[in-house]
């Protein structure tokens, strides 16, 4: 009960911080503008090379991967700056640590508004793809898509909380750190290209993260033909099982990192440090 109250209150606080600076219409426009433009970068890159022809499997692969990767990018960016915001901007972190709550669940709650906003952006992006860019969706493997979706979200939250915990030890540059880390996942998860394009030495890294399997499962659930040669021979069950295992591992690592970093931060007096560079 106490944990649920922590998550709910943190979620409400996060929503107020995220959304109450503007009228709802302005806020919704803000929430969807950035993802749309990040998608347009890839669409224009594709069009420059392909000479305008966009109704190919590779285009759909890139487009859908980018759309669903928004969850990872936004949750990492959202929860990744929570510590710096609470500690240095609002100077409230020490009070959160004084409260009788488990801070891991507080951070989990702060992820929820980001998930809600991102869901809106993902829907708009996919609809835009179907209407404007002639994206053809075929839900041939829909059970895989439905089962894998929550697993990827859980893995993303776990990674986000691990990253947020790390910011307890760093100076005020959460933005670059979270954007940078999201950039690493963007690269190694094969969000916008099949992972066989990566150099051989990077493939193990790609296969170590749940985001890679998650995006592959979602794309398989929505596309008519496979694009990635590495996963083409994998069955749906195998993909789902490995996604579940790597998700579980992410949760365990996230909790361990959170506890370890909190211990160090308390020891080094980092819970209320402020930087003014």
């Amino acid at each position: 009960m106490g944990l649920w109250r922590t998550i709910k209150t943190a979620g409400w606080l996060g929503w107020q911080i995220e959304a109450n600076w503007a009228e709802p219409f302005t806020f919704i426009a803000y929430a969807i503008t950035r993802p749309i433009f990040s998608t347009l970068i890839l669409v224009l890159m594709y069009k420059v090379v392909a000479g305008g022809q966009i109704s190919t499997a590779l285009f759909a692969y890139i487009y859908l991967g980018n759309a669903f990767f928004m969850y990872t990018a936004n949750v990492l960016a959202g929860v990744g700056i929570v510590i710096h915001e609470d500690r240095e901007r609002y100077e409230m972190l020490k009070y959160i640590y004084l409260a009788p709550i488990v801070t891991y669940f507080y951070m989990l709650g702060r992820c929820i508004p980001k998930l809600v906003i991102t869901t809106l952006a993902v829907i708009v992006t996919v609809v835009m793809g179907v209407w404007i860019f002639d994206l053809k969706l075929v839900f041939g493997h829909w059970p895989l898509m439905i089962l894998s979706f929550p697993l990827g979200i859980i893995a993303t939250i776990a990674l986000g909380i691990a990253l947020a915990s790390l910011t307890l030890l760093t100076a005020r540059h959460g933005f670059f750190m979270t954007e940078g880390t999201a950039g690493v996942f963007y690269l190694v998860s094969g969000a916008v290209f099949p992972i066989e394009v990566l150099p051989d030495w990077m493939e193990p890294a790609a296969l170590a993260f749940p985001i890679t399997y998650w995006l592959e499962a979602l794309r398989r659930g929505m596309m008519a033909e496979p694009v990635s040669k590495i996963f083409a021979s994998w069955s749906d069950e195998k993909l789902l099982l490995i996604l579940a295992m790597t998700t579980l591992l992410s949760i365990v690592l996230s909790v361990l990192i959170n506890r370890g970093i909190e211990y160090i931060a308390r020891k080094q007096g980092k819970l209320d440090q402020v930087f003014n560079y």
Partner: peptide, 9 residues
């Protein structure tokens, strides 16, 4: 990432 997108294309 963008380099690999161009390579994939």
């Amino acid at each position: 990432t963008y380099v690999f997108v161009y390579r994939a294309l």
